[in-house]
């Protein structure tokens, strides 16, 4: 990276994509480019955040995101502590505020928060001194996922502006869809949301999305197809009648995928329900960039940690 150039990033926390300027998104993506190089080195570590303490505060199960943040912090030489629901005092009825204050009393620098309540990171940010990074809040946002998705799209498509990105599945409950919608719209992509009407409320069009209930129609001319995980619990709440019917209508099959552009890529934030929202072979095909997303996640999270925590040490980052 070139530390001489002023970095366009002016936030103390990373709570969501909605608050970011397009230039700030570009800063994160560009910073991630240089971070990616570190992970390819023989010795995958730089001293940039030495002496900084990051806490992974996870109130929901997660392997991918938590490990990704952990590796990102470690590659920048920050110390990281994992704190998850099962091992916390939350089970003893402690409030979120008390939990965070106790952690802060131990002189930490950043909190990476995953929580089932939308707005929980915003709530934490309202009273704590540390930098708060939203690692997924309820059905609200998952900013680092959208950033790594954008990074991956840019890697394969060399641009984002003007692309047609189709996001398929449970849009209503998806923080990934929301963050991606905000980000891709800010960077000038066309976003088509696809799923049954029960899971794609019309208000999404007010956020700049196009809505298409038919997967076939949505796929025509798509540059990027992003499949979302469908949760079985949604069927119990009558969002769709059965997994069987959902699969018939919304599973990405090789036949359907032919409707997209020839060089279209397939993305999925994971974990995948093979054979439900995506055909298993397709998930492993050459057009699938699912594992690339995971790889890029580390670089994006390194970039975010660096931009928030780097401070004056930024100059010595290289």
């Amino acid at each position: 990276m070139s530390p001489e150039s002023p970095l366009e990033f002016h936030h103390y926390h990373l709570l969501g994509i909605e608050d970011l300027e397009p230039s700030e998104i570009m800063t994160i993506l560009d910073t991630a480019e240089s971070m990616a190089e570190i992970s390819r080195r023989d010795i995958k570590k730089v001293p940039t955040l030495r002496g900084k303490t990051v806490v992974n505060l996870f109130f929901e199960p997660s392997t991918r995101t938590r490990s990704s943040f952990e590796l990102a912090a470690k590659r920048l030489s920050a110390d990281i502590v994992n704190f998850s629901l099962t091992t916390s005092s939350v089970v003893k009825g402690e409030t979120l505020k008390d939990t965070v204050r106790n952690l802060e009393a131990m002189a930490i620098d950043a909190l990476v928060v995953r929580h089932s309540s939308s707005g929980a990171p915003h709530y934490i940010a309202s009273f704590c001194r540390s930098h708060v990074i939203n690692a997924g809040d309820g059905t609200h946002e998952h900013p680092t996922q959208a950033l790594l998705d954008a990074y991956t799209i840019r890697q394969f498509k060399k641009r984002i502006k003007g692309l047609k990105v189709v996001i398929v599945g449970d849009i209503l409950h998806s923080r990934v869809a929301r963050s991606n919608l905000h980000l891709l719209r800010k960077l000038g992509a066309e976003v088509v949301l696809c799923g049954p009407p029960t899971l794609v409320p019309p208000e999404f069009s007010q956020l700049g999305a196009k809505i298409e209930y038919s997967l076939e129609k949505a796929l025509v001319g798509a540059d990027v197809v992003m499949m979302l995980r469908i949760q079985r619990e949604r069927q119990k709440a009558n969002y769709f009648p059965s997994i069987r019917e959902y699969r018939q209508l919304y599973c990405l099959t090789p036949e359907r995928f032919k409707l997209a552009k020839k060089d279209a890529i397939i993305m999925h934030p994971g974990p995948i329900n093979r054979g439900i929202e995506i055909d298993s072979a397709l998930a492993d095909s050459v057009q699938s960039v699912i594992l690339k997303q995971v790889e890029n996640g580390v670089a994006i999270r390194m970039a975010v940690l660096y931009l928030l925590l780097g401070g004056k040490e930024r100059e010595s980052a290289d």
Binding site: S118, G138, H140, R175, E203, L207
Partner: peptide, 11 residues
Amino acid sequence: EGEISLRLGLS
């Protein structure tokens, strides 16, 4: 329920 609830991810 409306545009704001959708944006905030609140039911």
